[in-house]
Each structure stands twice: as structure tokens, then as C-alpha cells.
Design a protein around this nucleic acid. Sequence first.
DNA 1: CATGAATGAGAGTTCATTCAT
DNA 2: TATGAATGAACTCTCATTCAT
Lengths: 231, 231, 231, 231
Amino acid sequence: MPKNAIAPQSHWEAFASRRRDPASKREAVLQTAACLFLEKSYRRTSLDDVARRLNITKPALYHYFRNKEDILLGCYRWGTTLIEEGLNRIAADCGSGLAKVEAFIYSYANVMTVNFGRCVMRLDEGDLSSEALAEVRRYKRKIDRRLRSFIQEGIEDGSIAPCDPKLTAFAIAGALNWICMWYEPEGPLTPGEIAAQFARTLTRGLMRPARRAASRRVLAMRAAGGNNISS
Amino acid sequence: MPKNAIAPQSHWEAFASRRRDPASKREAVLQTAACLFLEKSYRRTSLDDVARRLNITKPALYHYFRNKEDILLGCYRWGTTLIEEGLNRIAADCGSGLAKVEAFIYSYANVMTVNFGRCVMRLDEGDLSSEALAEVRRYKRKIDRRLRSFIQEGIEDGSIAPCDPKLTAFAIAGALNWICMWYEPEGPLTPGEIAAQFARTLTRGLMRPARRAASRRVLAMRAAGGNNISS
Amino acid sequence: MPKNAIAPQSHWEAFASRRRDPASKREAVLQTAACLFLEKSYRRTSLDDVARRLNITKPALYHYFRNKEDILLGCYRWGTTLIEEGLNRIAADCGSGLAKVEAFIYSYANVMTVNFGRCVMRLDEGDLSSEALAEVRRYKRKIDRRLRSFIQEGIEDGSIAPCDPKLTAFAIAGALNWICMWYEPEGPLTPGEIAAQFARTLTRGLMRPARRAASRRVLAMRAAGGNNISS
Amino acid sequence: MPKNAIAPQSHWEAFASRRRDPASKREAVLQTAACLFLEKSYRRTSLDDVARRLNITKPALYHYFRNKEDILLGCYRWGTTLIEEGLNRIAADCGSGLAKVEAFIYSYANVMTVNFGRCVMRLDEGDLSSEALAEVRRYKRKIDRRLRSFIQEGIEDGSIAPCDPKLTAFAIAGALNWICMWYEPEGPLTPGEIAAQFARTLTRGLMRPARRAASRRVLAMRAAGGNNISS
DNA sequence: CATGAATGAGAGTTCATTCAT
DNA sequence: TATGAATGAACTCTCATTCAT
């Protein structure tokens, strides 16, 4: 998994030499495209923009991607992979339902500060072809179902106060997804701070009064261990 | 997080007769445009699309709006006005900080289910010219500041547990803004239900343990009074 | 049915005024396009070429046709209509099988000297979409079946010597179709001469020895009557 | 007049081993290109298509041919050579004018079922540069003149009924050339059958009444001898 | 020799905007 | 007032051809 180039750093070095790992060139294209898509939106980003920033010509892009949408889809896939990796770690981390929700929030919030992660939730799905759209929707639904199941689990094991899992999941996911709208790499808040604060704030509303103390431990653990999502 | 069908209501009746006040025609254009912008995004919506749905010709639109962006800006302004009306009601409704936050959530959630309200948070700001963008940003910042001030007020009057007002506001606003992404007019959840549930869920995380009972009263009050925002 | 502009005469007068019969503009586009398609082939003819010759700009073409292929299809349809009109006249002209074949040759040869008719047999079918291709193929098969049925009829009524209708039809159709490859409007041979000669030459090989005299009458009749196919 | 499937034989074996005479590689390229040109037309066939089918890379083609047109010209030349070989055999075969015409038809029809032969008459001359075009035209005119001279000879020696040699040649050549449009290698008709039938049908219209019997002998001779043109 | 990479030129198409009626 | 027609600019994508290794 790649570095998360959040700032519009240039990736054109990957194209400096002809003989160079094609995979790294593909990645350079995706990183650059993700930046531009977030800056100006997919539609306003022309392939010339992408090529110019990489110091190559437009048709060269067609060596690595079938068409513009293929680049977009590449960004989506990279982002959903990041999210999924987080989810898999959490599934293994067998704690209470509340602990899982908290871990989910922490992990997901982190991804929402990585360019590829931001693409998943911020770019307009309408720019995807129907097949690609189906694929992306499948991913998103999966994530949603996981969160709901964590909440359900928490209600059942008593770590979470009774509530409507669907709407609660919407609220949590909304708060998290919106991070990709306001987060700025150069801003004062680090991804870690955001993740930690969101984990605390959003879980507070879920706990049963008696269990509040328990969550503190989870947070402490998280802050100590290097649960860094941006591999 | 599914695609949301915008109410396919037709506004072309406003153009059926020649003698009709221009204001209602302007509104008809905006309503139709808002629908289309939400369905297909601003960029993918051509003026031909708008004109066709209104049963008029494209240049006719230029009688009511200077250009395409002017239509977009009209949608934004209508939406921000809706939000602001809610805010003004709340400012007058002098309760505790927590009560104001709760009222804010209720009001705002409702607006996020109205097309014009959804436009404000869902459409891509990048499609606005720099001046229009500045105007919209001013509005959004104002809303954000209000929410933060309500939270601050709650912390000071003791109705809200100590927290970082900025990040807390981000979390609440995010959960609310995201409504406009998943809400479907034809779906099972009514705006009122969503608003009430979100008000309850999101405020639970804010309260000081001892004060929980207080919030119940606010919700009851709200359910009784017809604080209906939808234009 | 239009004049058959064989020479590359200019049709731009149709676009001289904005307010002008759209149908005539459509026709002007088709006439011009047919000329260019025959001159340079469909692929080498750019829409700019067509527009330039009509003294309009490229996007203006999109007012009258959905896309480039639509223009091509328009040419095909016009041509097949010309052919079909001839066929219908012959069906009504109830003579012997041989007489029908002869009339077919005469009529068809004439069409092969008209631009739209030439398009049908000379342009590359591979440039059509699969649907359009199916439509054109349907037409061509129909023509082929008609010719074979005329031959069969002639064999049965004794006016044509026994032969394989399929291969004979191929030979006749081939000789006729090839006209569109070598015919030049400015050349020494007039469409009428070509048609008459081909009718005579190609039917000679079909007749039963005893019946030769009969065909002379048909030819005489044809030469006298104004069975002119070009509009 | 259906689409005709070109024998999908693969010629890439010629490139399987490095040690292979360049001539056979050149031929492999031409065979493959001819197939593709007939399938999809010259313009729609990219050099990538050719290279892919030969299991080599695109620039490798430039070792054997100067450019794309050079490949096209190679196909034309191969085809015209095939035709010419037939003509030379006939010139030596000193029979009556009618016999020569018949032999011409038989030989030419056969060539029209071979890919290279089909290329000559089916591909778009407009894709040739002016020099190459001149060369190809020279060949074609030569063929046409030969046919006309055979007819003239026949008229003079009394084996052919008086007619206009030019138009008669056009009719015969057209019927033959069109074979390359409808012939299918996998179809029910073999090249030999087609050639024989066309020779019979087309000469019937030329003969003087008294001489019909003579032609039978020519055909019988042809059927016996292996005058097979297909390389 | 052979190849992956890169390019320049050009095509079709869309669309906001403006003219002319 | 309102409209059909027209345009210019922009964008995606293709492909023959040539480098550089």
C-alpha cells in the first residue's frame, strides 16, 4: 500500500525514465489524478491536467489506463481497499460491540484523511459507468452492513444502549464521511487527533451509562499502539 | 448509501400560460434545476435538460437567469435561506445550550431533506465562480459558527459536557449534512422521523450524565409543535 | 425525391438563411456528404469537411443529425428508397420473367449512377453500427430476393433458359453494382446509355434461343417510354 | 450480399523462430494484413491489430515495411501478380476470342476468391498515396484493356456477336469483381464452381447463335485441367 | 534485432452562449 | 417576448510513427 500523498506533491519523477516499474507509474497517475479530482472534481479535471502535472503527454496515460473512467475507478478501488484493510483488522480484534464501533470509527476516520479514501466518499458516483457503479456500491453497502452489525452486536452484548442500528449507523457514517469534505492536510488537526476525538465523541452517545469507563481503556490502547491505517 | 430519487414533480405548469408572474417562473426554473442537479450533478445537467423538463426552449432560460451558474447560485441561495430561517427561530427560542443544539439538529435535518437544502451541501462548490463561492462559503461559515456557539453556550451553562466545540460541531454537522446524500423522498423514513432520531442520538453524546432527563422535555416539545421547515 | 447531384455541386445555398426549410437543409447535408463519401470514403471524410463545403460549422450539423453515422445512414436510406421505387414500378409492370429482369436491370443501372444509389453499394458497410447494418442488409437481401424471383419466374414461364437463379442473380447484380465504381458523371456515357446497353447485354445470356425476338420489343418499348428513374 | 468471413488462419508461426528467412516473414505479415483489411477495412485495421495477430510487436512491422501503406501496397501487388499470371497463361493459350474471354473469366473468378485477389478490387484505393495509386491503376487498366482486346478479337474472328467492347467488358468485369464482395471461403460454393458457372453464364450472352456448341469444349477442357490459381 | 514507451496530430461530440427572426 | 439556429471552445480518445533501451 502506498504513501498517501495528500498535498499536491508531484509524482512526475516516476516518469523520469522510460524504463521504470510500470506499477509505480500507474500509481503515480492515480495519486496525481486523485489530487486533481479532489481539487477540481472529476469532470473539471481534464486528462491534459493530469498529464501536465506528470510531465507527460495525454496519450501516454492510455498506456496505463483504458480511459478516463478507468483512472477514476482505480482511485475508488484503492480507497475501498484501504477501508477494507481497516475493517479486517477490526474483525480480528474481538472486543465488545462498542469496542468494535470505536475501532471502526478510529480506522475509518483515518482513511478519510487519505486522498484515496477521500475519493471514495467525495467524488460523484454519477461519473462511474453502471458496472463500476455497481462495484463501488457493493463496497459501500458492505461497509454499512459491517457498522450496523457492530452496533447490533453492542446492543446485544450490552455495551451499547438500545437504539435504531440503521439510523445510528447513518449518523456515525455521516459524521465520518464528512471528514473528507473539510479535512485539510495542511490544517491544524492531524488525522490521529481527528480520529481519536471522533472515536470518543461518537461513542459517548452510544454507551450505556454504567459502561463509560470501559471505553477509556480502548482509547488509551489505540493511542499507544501504532494502529496507523495509512500503512 | 444509495442513489436517491428526487421527487419527479413537474414544474412546467408555471410556464403553461403566458400571463404568469415572472417570480413564479423563476421559482419553477430553480425547482426543476435543483431536481436535475441532484439527480445528475450540475455538470451533467445541460440547460437543454432543464428547458426540456419545463417545456420551454433554452434561450428562454436566459430571460430569467444570466447564465447557468446564476441558476446554480439561485439554488444555493434558496437553500441557505431555508437554513437561516431555522437558525433565526432557534436564536429566539432561548433555552439552554443543549436545547439550542438539539433544536438546531432538528431544524437542520429537516432542511437536508428538502431539495434546495440538499443542494447547499451536496452540490460541488467548484462549479461556482469565485465570487459566488465566497458568498456561499460565508453562509456556511456562519452556520458553523452558530453551531459552535450553541455548543460553547451549553458547556458554559453546564448542559453540555466539556468537549472541543470545533470537532464536535464537525461531527454533528457531518452527520446532518450526510443526510442529503442518502435521504430518499420515497423511502421509508420521513423527514420528521429522521430529524427526531438524529436530535436524540446526537445530543446523547453531549449531555452531562446528570442532565439527561432534561433533554426529553425538549424533544417532547418539538414533537408537539409544528416546527416544520420544508417550504 | 431530390435532384441527383452527381457532380460535386455546392449545396450551401440551403444554409444561406437561418429561416429556411429544415428539410432542405437536411437534404443539402446528405447530398454534400454523399459526394464526399464517394470521393474520399466515409472514414476519410471529416465532419469538418462536410461543414466546410456547406459553409457552416461542424456543430451545426448536429442540429440535423444525431452523429456522423446518422448522416451515413441517411445516405443509405435515400439510396435504398430510390432502388425500391424502381422495384415497385417493375412489380406493377406485369410482363414475362425476362421482361421483369430486363426492367430491373434498366432501373437498377440508372440508380447506380445517382450519388445516393452509389452510396448503397460502394460505401463500406463496416462503418455502420450493428443496428443500421441490419437495416441495410435487410434491404439488400430484399433486392437480391426480388431479382432471383424474377429469374425463377422467367425460367418457369419459359422466357429464360434454365439456369441457377442464385449464381445468375449474383452475376447480374455484380455487373450492375460495379457501375457505381467506374461511372463518372462527367464521362462520355450517359446513365441512359449504360442502362440500355446493360439491359441488352445481360439479358442476352438469359434468353432461350427461340425467344430472342421477343426481347427486342421490350427494349424498344423502354427506349421509347420515359422510364427514367432519376427522380 | 452478406459479410464474408475470411479464413481465420494464423500466420504467426512464421515468427515463432528467430531464424527464418525474412521473405516468409514479410509474406506472413501480408497474409495477416490482407485478412484484416478484408474483415475490417484498411482504415479500421490498426497496426496493433496486425501485430497482435502475428504475436509480435508493432515496431517489428517497421523492419519489414516502411509504413502502413507499404503493407497495403504489398497486398495490392501480390493480388495483381496473381491476376497477371492468369492473363499470361491465357495469352499463350491461343484460341478464339470467345475462348480467351471464357478463360479470362474462369481465371479471374478464381483469383477473386483468394484474399490477395480480393484486396485488389475490394479495398479502397483512396487509402493509397498518389504514386501507389498510379501504379495500381496502371495494373487495372492493363487488365481492362486485355479483356477488351479479347472481346474485340472475338468480334473480329466471328466467335463473339457484335457489341460495344467497352461496355461489355465493364459488365463482365463488374460481375467478376463483385465476387470478392460476396464470396465466403466457408460458404457452399467452391471457387471452381463459381468460376465455371460464371464462365458459362457470362459467355452465353456473347456468342453468336451458331457457335454455342463450341464453348462447351472450352469448359470441358478447363474442368479437366487443374487450372487452379489459388496460391 | 526487437521492444515498451511516448508523441503529435486529428477526429467526433457536447454544450453554454449568442444571433436573427 | 420568445425561438430555432448557429458557434467556439473544450474534451475524450485513437493511431501511425519514432525514441531509447
